[in-house]
Amino acid sequence: MNELLNRADASAGAPDWRLLGEELHLAVNAGDFVSAIDFVRAVADIAESQQHHPDIDIRYHRVFLAVKSHDVGGLTERDLRFATAVANEARARGHSMSPNSLTAVDVGIDCADPENIAPFWAAILGAKVTDDHEIVNPHGRAMRVWFQVTDSPSRDRGRTHLDVMVPHDRAEARIQAALDAGGRVVDDSAAPAFVVLADSDGNVACVCTWQGRDEHEAAERPD
């Protein structure tokens, strides 16, 4: 039950949800605020019965959910069971699910020594430093900050960039929208895991999906 799933199996096992980063995400349109609250109550009942609790964000008639198995740091069959139950509940209530509205964002900072500068970013963000020298808010209320080790700052781009995680089936449209808005592709050699784009001033962002991520991470690991 607690065995980690690979990204492909996690995505396939929750077709109504979208895998962004290490979490499954769902966006539900309940129609109005009261219906959204009623739906959240139903989700709470599912969570209590399964003893598996998601992050929930209510924005008027929309409910955004995210789930992962924090005890093992990834996705398991437990997450798929919860995701299926919640999607079935939404469908039974006649609520629509809209993956196009889902986005998650991380901040990446180029640096020579993450251990040296991580405490500064944790302090200014009111967050904590993980064992991997990433900055995470203990309450999940801010973007994750991670550090990309580099010998020297790049001269043709900023030292800070955004990782914009989008549903795998919306990545091409999101990239095209950025190009239509004046952007350009800097590097697509790691696609579909991520494509590096820049605006007309050279500011960089990566459009990321789960697809190809396992293979990319395996290739990046030292032998």
Rank of each mutant, 00 (worst) to 15 (best):
M97C: 08
R213L: 15
R141M: 10
R159K: 11
H61I: 03
V204W: 00
S98G: 00
L102I: 11
V72P: 03
A42H: 06
W121P: 04
T150Y: 00
D132Y: 12
E217W: 14
A218M: 14
M1W: 12
Q211D: 10
C111T: 15
V107S: 02
V185Y: 01
D106W: 09
H161E: 04
R41N: 14
A90N: 05
V186W: 04
G182L: 12
I135E: 01
N2I: 06
V129P: 06
G21F: 06
E215G: 13
W210N: 02
A177N: 09
D45F: 07
R155F: 09
I56W: 02
F120I: 14
V28F: 07
L162K: 04
A177T: 11
D106I: 12
S189Q: 09
A142H: 04
F194H: 09
H53I: 08
V186F: 06
G182S: 11
A14L: 11
R81W: 00
L19D: 05
E23T: 11
R18Q: 12
V129F: 04
S101D: 14
G21Q: 07
A87N: 06
R174V: 15
V149S: 09
R93T: 06
L4S: 12
I117N: 08
E172K: 11
D32A: 14
D55F: 06
S69Y: 03
R59A: 11
G74N: 09
R81P: 00
L24F: 07
H139N: 13
S35A: 15
A127K: 05
D187M: 07
W17I: 07
A177P: 03
L75S: 02
R155V: 12
N2D: 12
L80E: 04
S49Y: 00
W121G: 05
A193E: 09
P153I: 10
V105F: 05
D79G: 05
L125H: 05
E217K: 13
D16T: 06
T160W: 01
H95A: 15
H25W: 12
D55M: 06
T150R: 13
G202K: 02
H133G: 02
D9W: 01
D79V: 02
V149C: 02
R18H: 03
V129R: 08
V186T: 07
P99F: 08
L80P: 05
G108V: 05
N116C: 11
G126H: 03
A127W: 04
D201G: 00
D199F: 13
